[in-house]
Amino acid sequence: MFEALLGNGLILKKIIESIKELVTEVNFEVTSEAISLQAMDASHVALVVLVLRASEFEEYRCDRPQTLGVSITNLAKLLKIAGNDDSIILRAEDEAHVLTLVFTGKNNEKMCEFNLNLLTLDSEHLGIPEQEYSAEVTMSSSEFSRICRELTQVTDTLNLSVDKESVKFAVSGDIGTGSITMKANNSDKSEEKLILNVSDTVSMAFALRYLNLFNKASSLSDEVVLSLSPEVPVVLKFAFDLGELKYFLAPKIAE
């Protein structure tokens, strides 16, 4: 038996909204320690890694580890029915064929129960190596989101350069070229704050289309951490009370 009670159901709604355009069918691994998933997008350019710690749920029980194959598309449809203030219970019997979702209103005035049919999916687990990164950028997630969105109007590729003092977001398109440079600072304003941890200067190119999809997770966390090393996938990490959501994106390579 697996059962997890989440008092703040909104966070689960936000998580699923943040991944549904990247991955449509995924295996959730449930253990006594965590609910986790790892899934690549269809074009094998991006990877989503989610961990929700058991200890952060109001109630959590997992008698034996289980893989739950879930249609994210359909889960998102059901979660739309849950109110933002609702608590959410996730429940599955051992060797389950359905995932039960129970949404309960704040004052217990309304309870919705749905059984989502589970899928049998090929599990495809990538061995992600432990990696020391050349540069780590911690900044406001909404500011990063805004920069990516605005630069998308110029072109589809973001050139990201980080040195010890600043991070530069540069684009080059048919209409012209441009860049936004932010200097490391410890401003009290969360929008301006930028922390750099750089051992080596890095300059890499990424598809803005994917970064814009990742940035849907900015509603989960005020900060995003970008980890960069030459010629390896960038990691965008959004940490929140319940756990963390990480996105890996393969770089573009100059022809």
């Binding site: 996938p233 390579i253 100059a254």
Partner: peptide, 14 residues
């Protein structure tokens, strides 16, 4: 132009 790399090139596929 930049060529898009595949994630599979970076991670072992187990």
């Amino acid at each position: 132009a930049n060529e898009q790399a595949s994630l599979r090139r970076f991670f072992d596929h187990i």
